[in-house]
């Protein structure tokens, strides 16, 4: 195994870990995937240490060790599935290391998200369904349709502009609260509480919460607590935005 091969392997494995972590995969699964990829390349002594904000990966005693930092975290299940696919192919020796690295680079550059309008529409429909599931009345559906869609739109746009997650969620919750308040005031909707609950459902940190507990159970206490704090901050931001509207 030459130095070049080692460098390529470490780049490839780190990139895979980084894409998975940035797309919101569980920490223990990222570690597992990285080690599997390394073992398939006959690197038995490799070690990986994954946290939500950075990855440290080493190939062994006399080999290089590399760090990569992770600054953004979104929920992108498509990328996780794609990286998983590449690692599966690499570990069963269907593709070589060079091909895997090329594929991973392509995955990292491509934006797999569906158009924002489709996402907003999905959020609207999901919110409307939830208000009926939570025993709301069909009369509130138009108001919650608007509130859910606008909420997701605000969170996406503000996050793209400011890069502060807490602030974008706070603002989105505030907008949802105002829409619900106006809807009740102008008698488009009836039940303020249920409109707000339905509207904030697309913002709920469901992925973070489940990942936090699963990482804790897998023994990754740093990652579990980190993600738990992120989930708590998100919930707190939503709560603060709604509370501001309710307190008037």
């Amino acid at each position: 195994m030459s130095i070049y091969d080692n460098e390529l392997a470490i780049d490839c494995i780190l990139l895979a870990g980084r894409i998975m972590m940035e797309s919101g995969a569980e920490t223990y699964r990222v570690e597992d995937t990285m080690l599997r990829m390394a073992h398939s390349q006959n690197m038995e002594n490799s070690q990986s240490y994954v946290t939500p904000t950075g990855i440290i990966f080493s190939l062994g005693r006399t080999q290089p060790t590399r760090i990569t930092s992770i600054s953004t975290r979104v929920t992108d299940l498509h990328k996780i599935a794609l990286v998983n696919n590449v690692s599966r192919k690499l570990t069963s020796h269907i593709i070589t290391l060079e091909q895997a690295y090329d594929e991973l680079q392509k995955i990292q550059k491509t934006n797999y998200f569906l158009p924002i309008l489709l996402q907003v529409l999905a959020a609207s429909i999901a919110s409307s369904c939830f208000i009926i599931l939570f025993n709301g009345s069909w009369l509130d559906v138009p108001a919650v349709f608007v509130a859910g869609g606008v909420g997701l739109y605000v969170v996406t746009i503000v996050h793209a502009k400011t890069r502060v997650k807490f602030f974008s969620e706070f603002l989105a919750a505030l907008v949802i609260g105002i829409i619900a308040f106006l809807a009740v005031k102008f008698e488009v909707g009836q039940d303020l509480d249920r409109i707000i609950i339905g509207g904030v459902m697309p913002l709920v940190p469901g992925l973070l919460m489940t990942n936090a507990v699963r990482d804790l159970m897998a023994g990754h206490f740093m990652a579990g607590i980190g993600k738990g704090v992120e989930a708590f901050l998100t919930a707190f931001a939503i709560g603060a935005g709604i509370a501001l509207v309710l307190s008037f």
Binding site: G24, I80, L133, I242, A243, L246
Partner: peptide, 27 residues
């Protein structure tokens, strides 16, 4: 389907999340 389990479980648990109760707590 040979995809990670997270793809199915994350959206699956969303209806169970106690959004209404958390809202009432804050209110």
């Amino acid at each position: 389907f040979r995809v990670p389990m997270i793809v199915f479980s994350v959206s699956g648990i969303i209806p169970l999340v106690p959004g209404g109760i958390a809202y009432n707590a804050m209110r």
